[in-house]
Design a protein around this nucleic acid. Structure first.
Lengths: 244, 244
DNA sequence: CGAAAAATTCTTGCATACAAGAATTCAGAG
DNA sequence: CTCTGAATTCTTGTATGCAAGAATTTTTCG
């Protein structure tokens, strides 16, 4: 059976079939497919409004329709795709109105996180968040957008985690997907870097002091400032669409 | 081809096959399967910890594995199921700690909704919410739990809708699933009916007055009271498990 | 009789086949 | 040449097949 020189034509054909990539184990396709597709959408590689052809995605991602369809369903639930009955799903438009709606919700959620986090802030936890803050500053001085972006997100995530509320974290992750998408689509970022860093310092100080009300307020306003800037940038872009 | 007396054995066999229920159109199975399964979980018909056998569910729901698997994935994302790799998914435990976590998040979300709703409260909208309030009172006087339950949820939902923020509504619906589940599992309800009705009246008054801060505060506290009662009831139940 | 191991059965993960509906193409009439 | 409509093709929705891994039973040895 394991003879390398099997001579039947059928065996020859079968030999070059899938070869399930030795290292791949069962049960990993759903997750990885979701991750890949989500990245394409969040980063804008798949533009808003783009139609998703399942067969095409199968080829592109190298899997069968089953995991692709599962991924589409998942991302539809996350609000990144819109499903039309018997028609191709499309990448959700990123409506400025919806981002404005996000402002209220995300700022409120992060405000709550700040309040809870301040009450639980140990020295160690604050130090860890502080580290993320400095990492972000480092990327700032180097003008490294992706690194800055990632450190910024890690800074916020760490605060949510510090709040110690799993439901809060769950909701935040859902919201963060949409926020990220909006961020990617408007690269106004350099303009807000400095102010964001200052605000982060203020937040860090409030957490260090264990001042729940202050941490809450500062996070709320920080998020509101950031997203408002995003909305303004997107409106600007919409007004003069060719200045990218 | 349409001869009613086709004589081949194969045709005879095919004749008694599925008969896809004349009224059923393509594309409806996913949604209906999710709804059915979700109901089984939320109402507790499928107990926390129960293992889901896909084949069994297929028979029970009368569909193939595909929609069942999709439904399982959807509900897993909603947090009603937990997926274990290569093993049966199980109905998520309803952990008291998680419900405590829900308190902070749901009360904050509804507080935000109250704030936004008060700012947009027209006479018509307030009248509509008032109607739901009276419907709830009616069910209260008649001791009709399911109706009370439904009217209560409609009351809250209408306020969220009045807030006019689609992201807020989306998040609220996700959270409401877990809240409902907790409610079904603890039937302490009659005890809190009266107070809930009084609180609703206060909320309605704040909305009528267009007082955003007050509406926000009252909704926040109303939700907190309700869920805290739930947690207490569940802890009680856990302490003396046989008193159902 | 008890315990470990081997074999069988069961269950999920992924792929694929088939059917219903949508999109597109092509033909023909005006 | 354009518009309409029928026929073809394409795409999604659902069912089913097959294999990898888990659970269970049976068997064998101490």
């Amino acid at each position: 059976m394991d003879s390398p020189a099997d001579t039947t034509p059928l065996a020859a054909l079968l030999a070059q079939v899938p070869q399930p990539e030795p290292g791949r184990r069962k049960g990993a396709l759903h997750g990885s497919t979701v991750a890949k597709l989500r990245n394409l959408i969040v980063t804008g590689a798949l533009a808003p409004g783009a139609k998703l052809n399942e067969r095409e995605l199968c080829l592109q991602l190298g899997v069968s329709r089953t995991p692709v369809r599962e991924a589409i369903k998942t991302l539809t639930q996350d609000g990144l795709l819109r499903a039309l009955p018997n028609k191709s799903s499309v990448v959700a438009e990123l409506d400025v109105g919806e981002i404005e709606a996000l402002i209220d919700v995300v700022s409120t959620i992060e405000g709550l996180a700040g309040e809870l986090a301040a009450a639980r802030a140990t020295e160690e936890a604050v130090a860890e968040i502080g580290m993320l803050h400095y990492r972000m500053m480092l990327h700032h001085t180097r003008d490294e957008l992706p690194g800055y972006f990632e450190a910024n997100k890690a800074f916020h995530r760490r605060i949510i985690e510090l709040a110690g509320n799993p439901v809060l974290l769950w909701i935040w992750e859902l919201l963060a997907l949409r926020v990220d998408r909006a961020r990617y689509s408007s690269n106004l970022w350099p303009k807000r870097w400095k102010m964001a860093i200052q605000e982060h310092e203020q937040i860090l100080a409030a957490l260090t002091a264990g001042d729940a009300a202050l941490a809450s307020q500062r996070l709320r306003e920080h998020v509101r400032n950031g997203l408002s800037g995003l909305v303004a940038a997107l409106k600007d872009k919409a007004a003069k669409p060719d200045s990218a």
